[in-house]
Amino acid sequence: MGIFLFAEQVLNGLQLGTMLFLMASGLTLVFGIMNLVNLAHGSFYMMGAYFAATLFKLTGSLVLAAAGAFVGVLVLGMALEIAILHSFYRRDHLDQVLATFGMILFFNELVRMVWGPQAYFLALPEALNGSVELIPGAPYPIYRLIIIVAGLTVALGLYLLISRSRIGMLIRAGASNRTMIEALGVNIRVLFTVVFGLGAALAGLAGTMAGPLLAVQVGMGDSVLITTLVVIVIGGIGSVRGAFLASLLVGLSDTFGRMLLPASLAEMTIYILMAVILYRRPQGLFPAHG
């Protein structure tokens, strides 16, 4: 393998990894704090992509579309939490899996009705459509670099939010001891709603960014959801730091797996990785509780 090929594949792995982290951070927080398994997280990814695609068509601005989609999914997430999901926090995982599975069916069908069954393909503005030579002689698509930078920025932002701010302190407290923050007299209902909405919005952002690169289509969140679940289980459910490292690990091993392993193993790489890690460490790499 040439050094250029290796470098390019590392970037590809990072791009996939940062995208997964946007998905995983919200999912792992919601599980860690509210003890909720949310399969509908992939639907937020899809809704983000559709919101952004629609806004992009209306405004022609990628930034406006991304911002609008972020707010749109934030509101959608909070509304769902208030209307339905909060009453499932104290239910067992089976009920949560089923109720949110029902939501997947609902959202997929809703999108099919509103936007039609065919996929949308978004064209990038000319300025983002080319490539740059980070290393001379090895061009890399600008848009993929933007995804990497955006993902890392969100990771840094989340790190600061969680380690430095008051809401972050509550999140950390909530993740390690749920009853304690209630005892502190914090309005936990509002905290839950905000955290859920934020996680949904980050998933929406991932969908927004995937739109122009891949395709905006019904059910686009389903396969991403499964990969994201693998990520948070490897990272240790509830741990944002674990989710970050696991995202990059999964992104890189999937990319290199496809290149180096025979086809029959390549698709299974991440599941084998997960099974091995769970066998060695049944709570994932960074268990959040205890």
Partner: peptide
């Protein structure tokens, strides 16, 4: 085709 063009 889009990704081919983007890749340079």
């Amino acid at each position: 085709l889009k990704q081919y063009a983007q890749s340079g």
